[in-house]
Structures are given as structure tokens and as C-alpha cells.
Amino acid sequence: MTGMTGMTGMTGMTGTTGMTGTTGATAMTKTARRRPVRTSAARPAPAPPPPRGRGRRRLADQARAYAFLLGGLLCFALFSWYPAIRAVVIAFQRYTPGSAPEWVGTANFGRVLHDPEFAAAWRNTLTFTLLALLIGFAIPFLLALVLNELRHAKAFFRVVVYLPVMIPPVVSALLWKWFYDPGTGLANEALRFAHLPTSNWSNGADTALVSLVIVATWANLGGTVLIYLAALQQIPGELYEAAELDGAGLLQRVRHVTIPQTRFVILMLMLLQIIATMQVFTEPFVITGGGPENATVTVLYLIYKYAFLYNDFGGACALSVMLLALLAVFSAAYLRLTRSAEDA
């Protein structure tokens, strides 16, 4: 994080140039003088200050604390907590905007479960997640492993690999839709150039899902590579030296030093990737529209269809609750993992 100190240009808010009050100015100079000594210790601050008088003083302190909290709390209440509760409530209602909701028990779940698209959506989402793990998981690790050995053009590689991440996902999707064009698309031109049989890519029922996984991997792998690289740089060099003295070859060093040393990051990124890919929407929506023959309808896409095409918000919420329940398992695992790492 220390590398971010140069970022002040973007955070105009944080500058102290607007400070004109005299008390503030004295406070500034005093703290500025103290700062280098105190903050370099940078340890967690001890528990709350001693209570300065009870009663009204404390109440005023509390009021002030909640004044600071208010804006954030309101937004969390309105746009996180309330919708989470509402998803569960509406899942058991017939809900059309504008008219009074009506309790229908588990009818929404029944209707959704009997939708032939339901099975397709879950199958596609799980296949997508699995393929994304197979393709999108090993490749970034291998790339990071190789990049970490290269001693030249380091900055160039990092910028280039992250470039697709900064391209808006919609643009990546439209770009690959054009590449996948069976007639004049770049993908088939490349195959023809190599004298290989051409493919239908995103237009073929068998190849559509894999085609979308390729797009998602291309667009997202940069972030993963950079995180792996940072993790690889923290492996102490002595471990490799010791392993080499013990006669470990290259692959053995990867297996017995690199992988155990980065185990935590690997697991963390795997969970994050599962959570992200199970919510895939942009690629199928933009590239295939869920087709051909429902081959790329995902759960989130189906939620969108229920809400905005069928105007069936009850069904959409029933689906959301199911997706939430599954994702919560992975999220909980991820949180436990990161919290335990913090405590360590």
C-alpha cells in the first residue's frame, strides 16, 4: 500500500490546502511535528479513551459518532440490508410493481423449478464455473511463475497483462463477439491461417459456453496474475536455495516450495473466482443472448429474464435466494480464510 502515496492527484479531497482556521492550523503543525515519531510505530490503537464525565457529555459524544455514521448506515440499510430481507419476502409473494403483493407460499419456487430453463441455467452456470477454474486458474499461476523469473521488461509485462482488465467488460464482450463471427471473425481467420478446421464458436451449441469462458478468462486474468506475482515475491529466496542444495529439481522446487508458500493466495483466489463466475451475466447477455438453444443461459441471466422479460419478480427473487444460499457457502469460506490469515 505504501506504493500508493503518489496518488494524491486523484484524491483532491484529502489535501489540507482548504484549511484556513487558526485552531486547525496550529493543530496541523503540532501533529505534523509529532507524526513521524508516532505513526512509524503504526500499531493498533488501544481501547477507547477514559470516559470524560458521564451523562450528557457521553450522550453528546454518541450523537456525534452517529452523525458521522448516519449517511453510510442509511445507504447500507436501504441498499444492502433491506434488499436482502426483501429478496426472501418477495420469494414467497406474487409481486408486480404498482399493485399490492400477495402471499403465495412456495408457488414461486415450484414454478421456477419446473421451468426447463432452470435446469439449463444451473447446468450452464456450474459448467462455466468449472471450465473457468480449469482454464482460468492454472494459466494465471503459470504465467506469474514465468514472469517472476524474467529480469527484463518487468513493467511492460505487468501493464500488458492487466490491459484487458481495464477495458470495459461490455467492450471486451462486443470485441469477442466480432472475433467469433463464423464468416469474417478473427478466430476463424486464425484457424484458417493455421490450416485448421473452423469452428462456430459462440454460435454453436457445443462450443458457445467454452467460447464465453475464453472471453472471461482473457478479460480477467490480469488481476489474478498480479496478485500471484506479489505473492511469489514474498517467498524467501533461502527456501529455494535450501531446496536446491537438497538436490530438488525445478519442478520439485515448484511443488515443494512455491505451491506450499502460496497456498493461501491460491485458495483465496479460487474462492473469489468461483463467487465471481457463478454470477456471470455480461458475456452471455452481450455475446450470445443466452443462446443457441439456451446453451449459455446462466442463473443471473435467468433472474434478469424473470424480472424484466416475464415481469415475474416473485420468481426472480426465488431464484436469487437459491443463488444466494449457494454463494453464501463460498463467501463464508472466503471470509473465514481471510480473517484467520489476519489474526495469524
Binding site: F79, Y82, R86, P97, M278, I303, C317, S320, S331
Partner: peptide, 19 residues
Amino acid sequence: TLMVPAQALVVPKYLTVAD
């Protein structure tokens, strides 16, 4: 709320924003 992936809640969030 970190446990609740944002995209999975878009529909009730949309209904909240709409009214």
C-alpha cells in the same frame, strides 16, 4: 454484506430504488 454477492441481490435492490 460481504457474504452476500452484490449481483445476486440486484432484483430486490432494483425494486427498492424504483420505490
